[in-house]
Design a protein around this nucleic acid. Sequence first.
DNA 1: TTGTATGCGTTATCAA
DNA 2: TTGATAACGCATACAA
Lengths: 338, 338
Amino acid sequence: MANIHDVARVAGVSISTVSYALSGKRPIGEKTRLRIDAAVRELDYMPNAAGRMLAGTRTRIFALTAPLRSDTYAPAHMAFVLAVATAARKYDYDVLLLTEDEATDGLRRVSSSRLVDGIIVLDVSINDERAELVRALGVPAALIGVPGNADGLVCVDLDFEAAAALAVDRLVDAGHTSLALLGHPGVVYERGSNFPTRFRDGFLRRAAERGVTARFTMTEKDPPEVRAALSGVLDAVPAATGLVVHAEEGVHKAVLEAVAGRGLSVPGDLSVIAGAPTFDTSAFTPPLDVIPLIPADTCTRAVELAVQQLDGTVAPRVELVAPTYREHGSVAAPRPGS
Amino acid sequence: MANIHDVARVAGVSISTVSYALSGKRPIGEKTRLRIDAAVRELDYMPNAAGRMLAGTRTRIFALTAPLRSDTYAPAHMAFVLAVATAARKYDYDVLLLTEDEATDGLRRVSSSRLVDGIIVLDVSINDERAELVRALGVPAALIGVPGNADGLVCVDLDFEAAAALAVDRLVDAGHTSLALLGHPGVVYERGSNFPTRFRDGFLRRAAERGVTARFTMTEKDPPEVRAALSGVLDAVPAATGLVVHAEEGVHKAVLEAVAGRGLSVPGDLSVIAGAPTFDTSAFTPPLDVIPLIPADTCTRAVELAVQQLDGTVAPRVELVAPTYREHGSVAAPRPGS
DNA sequence: TTGTATGCGTTATCAA
DNA sequence: TTGATAACGCATACAA
């Protein structure tokens, strides 16, 4: 395998010239550059990673810690992992995957051995020991999600409160006065991530501000449970005419089936909005209006903030990404009678 | 951050003694070892990764290439990724995650920059360009799955044919003479991984060997499609009394619901076996007998084979892991009448 | 049992 | 615009 000396020899220049030509950190004469380029191609030269790490100040690797808890929804989880890896590549960074059972030890290991330049923390829970550790290590890091104590940390997340408020606004603007939120299973709210709570709070708060009736119901993902939860809000008085679903894909489908099973139509009898899903709701029957959770958005920003910490100081912050709304025809005015 | 010189100074020994003490590659005097250990703890020393990579012959990193195709089932995919990372740690290896849109370029990059010692290839499809590339690069690698052309490659996978045969044997041994296999959506068989095909072939072949009726039906994952597929085998003449399901989790649940919906009981009216799932079938209603696909099995073996390639030659091979059977009470003798 | 010295491949400083 | 050379931190062959 060719090294920088080989390239220098073939090109008839010194190794430092080769290094500078490749890094672009100082101007190189036109003819020299051409000779070097030719030598690089001829030898199929690629800089040795270890050599670069040792001599340079960067390893060009980020650690990614992404525990898979029991209440984690695998497809969304995977989407975030891939989004981080993809975003990292845009900055010429690779991603080292830390395992769950090595969460803190792994972080300690890769940072104190200088294997990585920084850390991306995924699926942050309220009392996340990784948040504490990152703060203690003082290593460049970006969290995707918000821990209970975000002091001194750089965090990025969707603005779930604003997302829920946006859903409420859309429904109220369409004329609905009785809304319901179908949320995750109860266990998700008790411990773990705080985004379900933020979504719920945003929903209830904005509904109160708008002066409309609002109900919040949690549901397990099995269709029977979903049917029961749905009955709770559709058979109530007043019955909900606007529904926001903040849950995983199967729950959305179960909701639509249950609604159809009751002989109701969307949006004729019931307006429905999907809250912060990572999956595609435009292929559902019927397609659902959606305020999407786009992994690439938060992950790209997190990687960007991690990179910026390497050669400048980035002020600690909780950066919330504004939600967007996509119409697919599942929201309409409520029936005059209801 | 302390380096090996600091440790040597504090312990009052040379750096080579520190190095050998830490690597255990030569005997160290008792008192010396204690002084070094004390110094290491005092300085919180951890060897610099880049220094080790450069001086040693190992980077202690494996690349993991795991594309997420449209027909990939995310939970299973995630389970394999984690299993590889966990297995790698047992050999003191870290895992670098390559992105899908950089599949071959990424492999080329990390191997020719010597960032990794080897490559683990996940979710191998029949015409997988990564298989060709790995062969061409001549880099230590282990594939999980079997490409169309496995010449010169080290591959590990569950023995899907044997798994299907085992399912057939169990049902036939219980007295069933009319079996059915409910498989993945059609697109999965046309292109992509070859394990669905291997399972199907194993099923049909063993059924023929045992002289029983066997039907194979593909199904999409939506409950209505599953119901239709199920009707196809239960309303046929002769009706199937033994069913093997080789599909994702939702399909299993839809099958059980549909069976219950027809007023049939498992295993009273229909015996059911889950074929090669990565999820838990013991919590289903009713629990299902299962021939599990255990990511840790194949991934651990793949990592082991990758490690062995680093300091010895490993003969190319396709190593198939023998299937196992777990009873949960979903198989019984067919009703006398049927 | 321990120490000395060299090299791994690159970056970056200092000279020219 | 280019070159010589000293780190970077460690592993290991060779000496003692």
